[in-house]
Computed example of a mutant assay.
Amino acid sequence: MKRILLFLGTNLAVVLVLGIVAHLLGLNRFLTANGLNLGALLGFAAIMGFGGAFISLLISKPVAKWSTGAQTIGQARNQHEQWLLDTVGRLAQGAGIPMPEVAIYEGEPNAFATGATKNNSLVAVSTGLLNAMSQEEVEAVLAHEVAHIANGDMVTLTLIQGVVNTFVVFLSRVVGYLVDSFLRRNDEQSGPGIGYFVTTIVCDILFGVLASIIVAWFSRQREFRADAGAARLMGNATPMVNALRRLGGVEAGELPKNVATAGISSRPAWMALFASHPPIEERIAALQSRR
């Protein structure tokens, strides 16, 4: 319930901020005079901005299972699966969250956590990760994923994505109306022209790129927090440091886009500004500085 209230409160706050800024700058009078209903635009931007992000969060767990082929462990079939269930259960108890679903999927070394709420979450590990790491290192990775759930990272990133999406939709259309009004100063024809549509599309792309940079920055910060959370759950930072060092020496498996930000990355993306994970070296340094 608290997370839902946070979502609704954030949505309302964004709309209010946009409305106040437009009023202070006098944009509301200008845009209304040129045929734009500012209130309707604010509502449209909020629905488009938060709607997609919220729907993505709600379906994150089934989509993650489908896209990776992850098989949930219901009843342990062997000692390895039993160890996974017992370990995740103990870590979840230490983090103060309900037991997540645990799943295994075929692939190169990687793991991820997802789910709409702490009560409906999933921790999945690949067979490659289980085969490439020691039991203590696997436990540290599981602790990292449990820390993501305990920190509410999935909801937090959804809120951030919704905020930036709302700004993208709103600002793109405001700029589109401004450009279109300038191009059609002596045109008495009503309704938006081609200048509005072209400008809106261009702004959607440009502002969308900037929004991706902002979301990626927040994603990198949550990785540091999850590493620190794993160190707390493990009792010290050494297992997580060792796990990161091991990951730095292997090629982390590529995850589908819908769960990529929740997984492991052994190196940053080709452009650091768009990387969802910090470099392994920075994560290790941050953990070692906590000792």
Rank of each mutant, 00 (worst) to 15 (best):
263 G>Y: 03
207 F>N: 11
31 L>H: 14
100 P>L: 01
141 V>P: 05
125 V>M: 00
277 H>S: 12
41 L>C: 01
144 H>T: 06
80 H>Q: 04
23 H>K: 07
81 E>H: 08
220 R>F: 08
173 R>K: 06
284 I>A: 12
69 G>D: 08
143 A>G: 11
289 S>Y: 09
135 Q>S: 09
257 K>H: 15
5 L>Q: 06
13 A>F: 03
241 V>C: 10
237 A>T: 02
41 L>N: 01
183 L>K: 14
153 D>H: 05
236 N>H: 14
86 D>R: 13
90 R>Q: 12
160 I>D: 12
98 P>R: 05
9 G>A: 01
173 R>Q: 14
180 D>V: 08
193 G>K: 06
190 S>M: 09
56 S>K: 08
4 I>Y: 05
250 V>M: 15
266 S>M: 02
201 I>D: 14
221 Q>T: 04
248 G>H: 04
195 G>S: 11
219 S>F: 06
203 C>Q: 02
246 R>S: 12
116 A>W: 04
290 R>Q: 14
67 S>L: 13
188 E>Q: 14
103 A>E: 04
39 G>A: 11
60 S>Q: 10
197 F>L: 15
198 V>E: 10
199 T>E: 14
154 M>R: 14
258 N>A: 06
31 L>I: 13
2 K>W: 01
72 T>H: 08
170 F>T: 01
279 P>Y: 01
198 V>M: 14
61 K>H: 03
19 G>T: 00
50 F>I: 11
179 V>F: 08
41 L>H: 01
273 L>T: 10
216 A>V: 09
123 V>N: 00
288 Q>F: 02
74 G>L: 12
262 A>R: 09
161 Q>R: 13
257 K>R: 15
118 K>N: 06
66 W>K: 07
189 Q>W: 01
96 G>I: 07
